[in-house]
Amino acid sequence: MRFGEAWPRRHDLSSLRLLGSVGEPINPEAWRWFHRVIGQGRCPIMDTWWQTETGMFQITTVPSMDLKPGAAGRAVFGQEAAIVDEQGQPVADGQEGFLVLKNPWPAMLRTLYKDDARYLETYWSKYPGWYFTSDAARRDEDGYFWIIGRTDDVINVSAAAIGLPHDVKGNAIHVYVTLGLGCEGTKELEEELRQHVAAHLSPIAKPDHIEFTEKLPKTRSGKIMRRVLKARALGQDEGDLTTMEE
């Protein structure tokens, strides 16, 4: 999107039949661009949700389903996913909660290396008998799941946002923004974006600071490495970077 439509239009994309998206949940604007420009309005997009631990898709769309920009789709064949509250009770459609998987699947992990106890504690203790994904999500009235983000990282909703220590607030919202080519990150634009968040989300969600950057640290599968952003902002050790794309 950032580099515009000229690059993909230089190529013959007529043989494409299906598009896929992995890593971060794809936002509706990017979904529509992907569908219109790359898929030329005719290719279904499979925005698959899964984890390294699951080894295979758990929630996805398939070409025969109605497509919803930004939605991960429904539970894959044979799986049953649910959104529950802290006590494990189902929440109403449209309400945010914890994403769990109710059925076993062929590619599931069975332990952690030399640490069976940690495996049980991490994935099976919070809701006994159900796999706890550690992701927050919601399900709409059509049964489509919308992934929000990690439950231990709730400030991040498909964005490069981190929380930095603040003497009064506890945490201050620090957001990294990548602009399109030809756009300049100015103080005026920063304030405009802050007001946009206040108007469309909530005044309390308004970022304390917006930093414009050309690139973000990502894994090879496209996940933003927010711990790296936070470590850099605080001047701390960035830890293991072997999974970082660049």
Rank of each mutant, 00 (worst) to 15 (best):
G180W: 11
D153R: 14
A107W: 01
F98K: 12
D167V: 09
P63K: 09
R226C: 04
V175S: 06
S202I: 04
E238S: 03
H196I: 01
G70P: 03
H35C: 01
R10N: 12
Q195H: 11
F34R: 02
L179W: 13
K218T: 15
E246Y: 13
D140T: 05
K114G: 00
E184F: 07
Y113N: 01
E191F: 03
D240Q: 00
G70E: 04
L179H: 11
M65L: 14
T54S: 13
I155V: 13
R36P: 00
E86R: 08
E192C: 08
E211K: 14
E141R: 09
D12W: 07
D115T: 01
H174T: 09
P207A: 10
V100R: 05
P69Y: 07
I224V: 14
G149Q: 05
V154N: 01
R42E: 07
Q79E: 07
R232T: 08
G149H: 03
Y176L: 02
L216S: 12
K215I: 11
L234W: 06
S64N: 08
G180K: 13
F3G: 00
I83V: 15
E5D: 14
I210D: 11
H11L: 11
E211Y: 07
S158K: 05
R10F: 03
G170R: 01
T219A: 07
Q236C: 03
T60H: 13
L67H: 09
E246F: 12
L229W: 07
P25M: 08
D12Q: 05
A92V: 11
R232P: 00
P106H: 07
T243N: 07
D152Y: 13
T48W: 11
L120C: 01
Y176A: 03
G78E: 02
V84F: 01
W33Y: 13
K218A: 10
F98Y: 14
H196C: 05
E86V: 05
G129A: 08
